[in-house]
Amino acid sequence: MKRTPRNLIGAALLLLALPVMAQRPGYVANFTELKREPSRSAETLQSLDANTPLTSLKRQGSWVQVQLGEQVGWVPMLAVRSGVPGTAKKGESGLSRLFNIARSGNSGAVTTTGVRGLDKEQIKNATPNPAELAKLDGYAASDDQARKLAASKPALKATRIAYVKSDGAPEEAQP
């Protein structure tokens, strides 16, 4: 079925209303396959090379529904990265902030809302506030209260699983 632009607009509006995840531009980090259903055994619609741009629509388990042009399908969630491929990656890079300084004349430490919070300056200048911290004791949960939450709907069932090493192998239990 070929979608009309009107259908597309309707679909887009519906997706915007999804509570769990708004549409998000992204790309695939490495070679993967676009599947018709969120399952490894589902029909492959097409192969996707690394850096293929797409739009994430919603997540289901370990799969994300994505849109490429007019085609919609599913890819493994961990194959998807947000943003645009090839742009400078964030994290431990002062480049974006240098750019900020050049553009706005400040280091970007002031948020647009005018509320400052927990940036470098605030931490540098912080003096301990034990009275504020003491409030936490009043909010603390007992083991029983935590178990009660887990027993309420939707119930959480504790399960035993080992930590994993960076290659995915199970870690030996530590005392």
Partner: peptide, 12 residues
Amino acid sequence: EWAAMLTGAAPL
């Protein structure tokens, strides 16, 4: 002590 510094930087 460490946590009191954090609540000094931003309240709960």
